[in-house]
């Protein structure tokens, strides 16, 4: 698929899955979508390995936009991007946006064939700063 992929990373698998459900309802199957949540040991948290897996699953040559919740999700997502490395790393953006609204808006933008930069910018517009 040539549309930008969306990855949702929450500390809670329930939040991540629920957000993905909302995205699916909005945009159907037009964007590659993956989510992950939890620390990998049954607790709340995020982990790099799962994030790398989600990026693989939602991979698109057009790039992948990642939506995160709290700070650790952002740190771990950036770590995952670094470990994936080039040439794919420069096609991945960790968005500064609220996770649910950001994911829905980014996916909607992506479903219309927008570029990674446009998708990320749309999500960023939701951020207060």
């Amino acid at each position: 698929m040539s549309n930008v992929g969306i990855v949702i990373v929450s500390h809670s698998p329930l939040v991540a899955e629920g957000t993905a459900d909302m995205v699916r309802q909005m945009v159907g199957d037009e964007v590659p979508l993956a989510w992950c949540g939890g620390n990998g040991h049954g607790g709340l948290g995020t982990n790099v390995e799962a994030i790398m897996g989600a990026i693989d699953k939602a991979w698109s040559e057009a790039g992948v936009a990642i939506l995160v919740d709290l700070g650790g999700a952002e740190t771990n997502s950036e770590m995952a991007v670094e470990m994936i490395g080039e040439p794919r790393a420069h096609k991945i953006i960790v968005c500064n946006a609220p996770i649910v609204e950001g994911a829905v808006m980014a996916a909607t933008e992506a479903s219309g064939g927008a570029s990674l930069r446009e998708v990320a910018a749309t999500a960023h517009e939701l951020s207060p700063s």
Binding site: G45, N47, V48, G71, T75, N76, M79, M83
Partner: peptide, 18 residues
């Protein structure tokens, strides 16, 4: 470092791993 990133988890994994 890579092993610590993958196994500590949380926010500390990337920090100590880095």
């Amino acid at each position: 470092g890579t092993k610590l990133v993958m196994t500590i988890g949380g926010a500390s994994g990337p920090l100590f791993g880095t």
